[in-house]
Design a binder for these strands. Structure first.
Lengths: 227, 227
DNA sequence: ATGTTAGGTCTTGTATACAGTGTCCGAACT
DNA sequence: AGTTCGGACACTGTATACAAGACCTAACAT
């Protein structure tokens, strides 16, 4: 009996439904405010209503859908203001994550961060944009894991998914700056400099916020409001 | 059509099951690591397995239960270390909440905070200890609401419930100091002093951590480890 | 013309039934 | 005596069925 059986051994239908619904919401295939009818989703995914219902509850807890009793679930709406609010939370949470990651750094966690950075570099070179977005989230999540705080991780996972959603919904994009900022953050963590790590993480999120606000401004000028 | 229909109009069975299971976990009636068999919970609460299953998924997202596919759900275990880790997260998150609450203060939110403080004072006078614990959480949550950040609120609700759980599980208790700290935090928020509000919130959580660590130390000395 | 009410339809909420998988225990074999 | 294999049991995963409520429409009355 090995210890490899850490959850991911089995993957239930419901897990896949949850992931698939989340993916379709994040990709914009399910638009904001769109009604999520259990029957149709079940038919669409070739399953019964039960896994769909349970998935919807999870996605509601993550903030991706809003559920009104006896009415149903709709994809959450994301005003520009709500999108902006997320950055305040991220600065606080990710700043802490970076600080703790620097404090508790291990060779294993540093190795993991470096590996994600390397994968991202390749994806950028090959122009795989969707992979870049996923790897961006993966890097931030890896910092959270390096912090070694279980509850911090539990809350960071949906938070970062939401952040990715916010970016994709606003057609906001960050250039190569983002990855140099990641590298710089990694170095501070690897050096064990808590203050610097936190400062760089906060600055990185602040830079992301500026990109977001620019994109929102652009959208407003072209009459394509975020919501 | 009034705008009063804000979610809480209807209360489904599943909502009550979720609340009831959470309550029994937080009260210790369902001990850490205890297996949660769907059939038995359904029979216990007089419902079918479906509401129970959905509730378990929600509680898993909140971190109260751990679900292993094809094995089942168990009440999450809470080591002393994990309990302590929560305070780091709380300081970051609640510090932000206090700062934003001070920034966006309104007469309505200030009134609401004052009302909770008043209710708590009465509960303390009347010696209703369980109500005091709930009102403690309610105050912290009210600060979160006063911050006017929807996602911050979404994550604070389960975080504060978990904090209450940590305290009750360790038999940690805080005296009247806690409420004078609350009052002091309220005043900083009402005065709109962001820096002071954040500092007092952080100090308050830090004080709670000291109480927790004292209780854990006491438990360890008496051979009653938290887990 | 407008308000109201009754019916039908759509969708959620809940329960029950079935299938599949893992666990545990005992018996047979080494 | 220890080990391994097999089968019964228990529980989860998934599907289907039924109940109840909400919304929409249309006919009717005022």
């Amino acid at each position: 009996m090995s210890d490899v059986s850490l959850g991911a051994t089995h993957r239930t239908l419901r897990d896949e439904v949850t992931a698939e619904l989340r993916r379709r919401i994040m990709s914009g295939e399910f638009g904001q405010g769109e009604r999520l009818v259990e029957d149709r989703l079940a038919a669409l995914l070739g399953v019964s209503r039960n896994p769909v219902r349970e998935s919807i509850r999870v996605l509601a807890a993550e903030g991706f859908v809003q559920v009104v009793p006896r009415f149903g679930a709709t994809v959450a709406t994301l005003s520009a203001e709500e999108g902006d609010e997320l950055f305040d939370v991220r600065m606080a949470v990710e700043g802490l994550a970076a600080r703790l990651a620097a404090r508790k750094r291990t060779t294993a966690s540093a190795e993991r961060l470096r590996r994600v950075l390397e994968e991202a570099r390749q994806a950028v070179d090959e122009g795989r944009l969707d992979a870049v977005a996923d790897l961006n989230t993966a890097f931030h999540l890896a910092v959270g894991e390096a912090a070694g705080n279980s509850y911090l991780n539990l809350m960071m996972t949906p938070m970062l998914q939401r952040a990715q959603w916010v970016f994709s919904q606003t057609a906001a994009a960050r250039g190569p700056h983002s990855w140099s900022e990641h590298l710089s953050l990694y170095e501070a963590i690897a050096a064990g400099d808590e203050d610097e790590a936190q400062a760089r993480a906060v600055a990185h999120v602040a830079a992301a916020r500026r990109s977001f606000l620019t994109a929102v401004g652009r959208a407003n000028r072209t009459k394509h409001a975020i919501n």
